[in-house]
């Protein structure tokens, strides 16, 4: 089936993006294989180039790296981290994370738009992590974002798609891949989001906190594929309509 995910002109068969940095590095390869992912995030602050336990050394060949700017508190810091990632050979993809809140780890949408604008101009393929807000998403699109990554629930909460209705608005209105980033805690939640028409799922904590990280990675892959198939089959539309009446309520009309 020719159902590819296109991000910034690059196509992917997998609709699952793996977060890293919360499980043991030596599990990375196994998790990536089981998850069937083609793209994995990488916190630049964890890159210990030439040093011990360097996350970059554990990424298998052929995987597209999605360096993130975690640790950035402002647009300016995010821009500098992105440039550093590129200079280290991590490629042109960048996930922008600007967080100015150490308690809830809520993304700063305003600063994120600013960073997106600068980095898109510099030729980065920018994937911003935001609170799902339509106005922000439009600004991101206009600033040259390659995708929008709304949060499903507070980061690390594993609560699922609490922002469901707002994510739906982004799906309906923004012609960019919509990738649910934080909050997905179980395969069933990932499946549900995919059924709605989300283009891809990113998961990290859900995998890292499972008993068997490799097995749960596989469970996510299957759930995402299943949800995608259901969406393509048009299931979502049927479910959203009210129950069909058995006989027409307006059949008495004569003309």
């Amino acid at each position: 089936m020719n159902d590819m995910l296109m991000i910034g002109g690059v196509s992917f068969c997998s609709r699952f993006i793996l977060g890293s940095g919360k499980f043991s590095l030596e599990d990375t390869k196994k998790v990536i294989e089981n998850a069937g992912v083609e793209m994995a995030t990488l916190a630049l602050r964890r890159a210990n180039v030439g040093g011990e336990e360097n996350i970059l050394d554990y990424m298998p060949e052929g995987i597209t790296l999605l360096p993130n700017t975690s640790g950035a508190r402002t647009a300016e810091e995010a821009v500098r981290i992105a440039r550093l990632a590129r200079s280290l050979g991590c490629g042109d993809f960048v996930k922008i994370e600007v967080i100015h809140d150490s308690k809830y780890l809520m993304p700063d949408n305003y600063e994120t738009v600013k960073a997106t604008e600068t980095l898109a101009k510099e030729g980065f393929i920018v994937m911003p992590y935001v609170y799902p807000d339509l106005v922000t998403a439009r600004a991101l699109r206009d600033a040259g974002a390659a995708a929008v990554m709304p949060l499903g629930a507070p980061i690390g909460s594993n609560k699922g798609l609490l922002t469901r209705d707002f994510v739906q608005i982004l799906i309906d209105e923004i012609d960019l891949p919509i990738i649910v980033d934080a909050g997905i805690g179980r395969p069933s939640q990932a499946c549900e989001a995919m059924e709605m028409g989300v283009d891809a799922i990113m998961a990290n904590t859900a995998i890292a906190t499972a008993g068997d990280v490799a097995l749960v990675a596989k469970a996510f892959r299957l759930a995402i594929e299943s949800g995608r198939a259901a969406y393509l089959a048009g299931l979502g539309r049927v479910l959203e309509q009210n129950a069909e009446a058995s006989s027409p309520l307006t059949g008495f009309l004569e003309e």
């Binding site: 043991s24 602050r45 890159a47 336990e53 810091e77 550093l84």
Partner: peptide, 11 residues
């Protein structure tokens, strides 16, 4: 557990 040597990038 995963020993981490660096978790910060000063920019």
């Amino acid at each position: 557990m995963q020993p981490v040597f660096t978790d910060y990038v000063r920019v």
